[in-house]
Design a protein around this nucleic acid. Sequence first.
DNA 1: TTTTATAATGAAAATATATTCATTCATTAA
DNA 2: TTAATGAATGAATATATTTTCATTATAAAA
Lengths: 203, 203
Amino acid sequence: MPRTEEQYKEMRIATQNKIHSSAIKLFSKKGFAATSVKDIAEGAGISIGLMYRHYKKKEDLFNELVTYAAEGLDRTAKLFQSDDSPVKLIEQFTLEILNDFDKDDEYAHFQMLMNQSSTIEDPSPEIKYLNKQSEAMLHQTARLIEKGQKLGQFKQGNAMEMALFYFASIQGLAMIKTTMNEVFITPKLEIVTSFLIEECISP
Amino acid sequence: MPRTEEQYKEMRIATQNKIHSSAIKLFSKKGFAATSVKDIAEGAGISIGLMYRHYKKKEDLFNELVTYAAEGLDRTAKLFQSDDSPVKLIEQFTLEILNDFDKDDEYAHFQMLMNQSSTIEDPSPEIKYLNKQSEAMLHQTARLIEKGQKLGQFKQGNAMEMALFYFASIQGLAMIKTTMNEVFITPKLEIVTSFLIEECISP
DNA sequence: TTTTATAATGAAAATATATTCATTCATTAA
DNA sequence: TTAATGAATGAATATATTTTCATTATAAAA
């Protein structure tokens, strides 16, 4: 006589989505400590009580978002395992990110969530995993760069240093996109990759 | 019969310095909300009560640090006013930052404090001023890039887009330096500026 | 119209953090 | 010794935030 299972499930999913998009926006910009449960609930257009029906603790919600971010990272890390040419891989990957920047705020939000996660003390297992993955991604990129250098596709130099600069620039772009949205311009591929890829072939 | 003015002043300055260095470390890494007064006092090796003898509120301390950051920004903004050649100015400025990165954490801390400041809601006048200054710096850099482009020193492209990427990469480096200190490597000048400066002069 | 299952609410309790303040400590010189 | 001064302490209080929970709202079908 009450609603069907289906209907209840839909309701729950609907409010979950509301909570998620409110929370990612706030956590990614202001960090865990600076965003209150009240803010999240208000942003989602629901009551505080309902928030706690879905998540026992504020931290649980944060951890869930962190887990999503880690999954995204895992997926992209796999792309780098491919046997495609390093230039092609880096260009494809970068282009995808730049497209994401252009489309909406989701990618920037997740990138910022990673930043925020790396500043938390006593990190949860979820956060520890995300931090580990992002460091792994860095090392994998360094290896890809080395490979590209041996093939003469990339400029010479310390591969780790280059990988680090690559991620720094992407993180910085995400930062600026979320804090200075009005002035932000998504850069062209060549701007992001020029430190890495030879442009003028000597005659 | 008690200590002299001088002596008291020295004592006050000594604890102020202790408070400053503890606070900048914590605020810059974790943000305003996530760092507690207790943490700051512990980091400084003093009691909570003494903290409040020096600053009426946690916010006052944050604002003081923000003011220092803004002063630093003002000073470097003036460098860009000079009539030196754009390449020279950018290279000098970048080199200085990279040197600072190598020396210690101070520059990265202040850079991060700027990031943190830009995420705060209801910003104090001090924070507003800092945010305004950092945006002004961005525009000034764009102008400098335009000038360099007209002189044929810089690659062609949207100057604002390039200025934005420049600051993004520096911000990102500061971020990575503070959150992944162990793996951080300060990049070479050429890596940071290659998106901007022509390297191979066509024969 | 009533019953039922679960979503949804928001005020109250629990907890954490910021701030205050009465007290103690340290040093100097009479 | 002791008086004087301001630094320094930390327990007590105020304030803010998180978490709980008794209560209400909603929609479907008997």
